[in-house]
């Protein structure tokens, strides 16, 4: 596959949380920035997200959680991706995430974390700097 192809990003909403304003805005912004974007819709289990990421052959998965379940659900997706041969897929996330939790999430493989008020350009820049097309 050519290394100049568009990056494919899966925007996902894990858990029961219905707050999708942020996820949808980020999905649009990433599309407007030239990425190929797939949005899972709401109420996805970690298994559903990992399966979609593998099946759609994405380069990165971005998750949005506003409900406080991030410490359980985000690492669960990382682990499932690794178990299914998707260890090269970059994982990032956003939502209401206290500072203490951020370090723990980074240690568990959620590399980029964006809290409320983050300019969209910052997320785009992070993807350009940290995500490369998988071979």
């Amino acid at each position: 596959m050519s290394s100049t192809r568009k990056l494919r990003i899966l925007v996902a909403k894990p858990g029961l949380d219905g707050h999708d304003r942020g996820a949808k805005i980020v999905a649009r912004a990433l599309r407007d920035a030239g990425f190929e974007v797939i949005y899972t819709g709401l109420h996805q289990t970690p298994e559903m997200i990992a399966a979609a990421a593998i099946q759609e052959d994405v380069d990165a998965v971005g998750m949005s959680i506003m409900s406080g379940a991030h410490m359980v659900l985000m690492p669960a997706v990382v682990d499932l991706l690794r178990a299914r041969g998707g260890e090269g897929i970059a994982v990032f996330g956003g939502g209401i995430i206290p500072d203490d939790d951020m370090e723990a999430l980074r240690a568990k493989g959620v590399k980029g974390l964006f809290t409320p008020g983050t300019p969209l350009a910052e997320i785009v820049d992070w993807i350009n700097a940290n995500v490369t097309p998988r071979q």
Binding site: G15, L16, S67, G68, A69, A76
Partner: peptide, 22 residues
Amino acid sequence: HYPTLMGYDSDHPRARGEVGKC
């Protein structure tokens, strides 16, 4: 919390990580 809003008991697999959070 979200499991109640969505009609799941706290011991349902879909409730994991969400119990008492929101």
